[in-house]
Design a protein around this nucleic acid. Structure first.
Lengths: 225, 225
DNA sequence: CTAGGTCGATTCGCATACAAAACAAAGAAA
DNA sequence: TTTCTTTGTTTTGTATGCGAATCGACCTAG
């Protein structure tokens, strides 16, 4: 009858396993957990105030997605991304994201395009980032932006694949900061990608996305020297 | 002291969760479980002679990999692959596998090349397939062949991505059979790919792989009419 | 006959308990 | 001192129990 639950506090609603997944993943992405750190089910369970079962589930998922590594014995650790692996991931992104953008230019709904435009505008308005909060907000919106394009590509399997491939750039955020110039270019790329999708121009969208990814890779490259 | 256990039957050694994963996945691939079939944890647990916990784990993994779909409520079902989805998956393979082949041409070890050559030869010797056993043997070797190339590409993340993308062609095996001509071409492609990798010719390997995937796609396309 | 509601059976999510495997540290023998 | 064994602890794998959400069939009212 009523819309029933979801009273106000949206906290209680989300399942424990999802919570574990998000929290652990965020900790890895934010750098609270560093590569090589050991992950113990029991400890994580206590920290999160839940039982081992959902923690296990989250760890298995993160393992499949490549954020967590399991050694031979009783060793589950945060995966450490050396330079070459980050490079490989960007190569994959350079392969997959233009493909997704091409699909999005064909299949995106008006609603999705609207969302992409909003995200692009908000990111532009926050550029150059002044505070850490600005910075985090941009990171988050960036992730949503790319995820939305994957969703709009019309290939469900891509969305799943993406989980292991995106957000790696976010890890690097811990090491250094992008320069204002990089952020501005990134914002411009986002705008262009949206325009291309809106114009239903698959090749344009793919090309703009390629530039976007390769620029990001070069930028990260520079940072890691 | 002794080599201790693993007496002979290598069965008992593997963990229950792995067993559940393999068995359920095989049943889907072999067609024993069809798209849309309902999957109940308890029932599967009883059938496999284990408890619900490892079954849960297997189902979650299969869900992430796209073999199982979870509806809104208590509905976990075998994913049904309609024509368009199979098509999308082949598009992804046409993107990823040439990339992997290129990497393999650069990074494959002699051991891996040896393995690929053996597989290619065995598949050729079994072509044209006479019995169902021949057919299944080829399917299995084909899977191993492609997996090995992914592993040889030097990009660990690819191996993970692949799990959700390969083997889909195998599902189609249930519907119809490839023609002898298709199998012969496939065997020839395999040989060519190995030669290209052996010659350390990335572009050649990528191109041969592209042909291989596109041919398979066209072949499947023809079967589904 | 249809629409809607109620109740029982099913099914899943999470917590907990137990068993087995792996690790580590201390002690004994060479 | 070094190495091997042995034992105690830690950590994971699997089983099971309970509560909550969901589903489905039947039943009632219009």
């Amino acid at each position: 009858m009523n819309i029933s639950d979801t009273p106000q506090g949206a906290e209680t609603a989300l399942p424990a396993s999802e919570l574990a997944y998000k929290r652990i993943r965020d900790d890895i992405l934010k750098g609270a957990l560093r590569g090589g750190d050991r992950l113990i089910e029991q400890r994580l369970a206590i920290d999160l105030g839940i039982s081992r079962t959902p923690v296990r589930e989250a760890l298995r998922r993160l393992t499949l997605e490549g954020f967590v590594e399991r050694g031979s014995g009783y060793s589950t650790r945060v995966a450490h991304l050396d330079t070459s692996e980050v490079d490989q991931i960007f190569e994959l992104r350079a392969l997959l994201e233009p493909y997704a953008a091409r699909g999005a230019a064909r299949h995106a709904t008006d609603e999705q395009i609207e969302m992409l435009r909003n995200l692009a505008e908000q990111m532009r308005d926050l550029t150059p980032a002044r505070t850490d909060d600005d910075y985090n907000a941009i990171s988050e919106m960036n992730e949503t932006f790319h995820r939305t394009i994957y969703e709009a590509s019309g290939s469900p399997r891509l969305v799943y694949i993406m989980a292991s491939v995106i957000d790696i750039g976010t890890v690097a955020r811990t090491y250094h900061r992008y320069t204002d110039r990089d952020l501005e270019r990134s914002a411009a790329h986002h705008q262009e990608i949206v325009e291309a999708i809106e114009a239903r121009a698959p090749d344009w969208a793919a090309s703009a996305m390629t530039s976007h990814i390769l620029a990001a890779q070069a930028c990260l490259h520079g940072m890691m020297r």
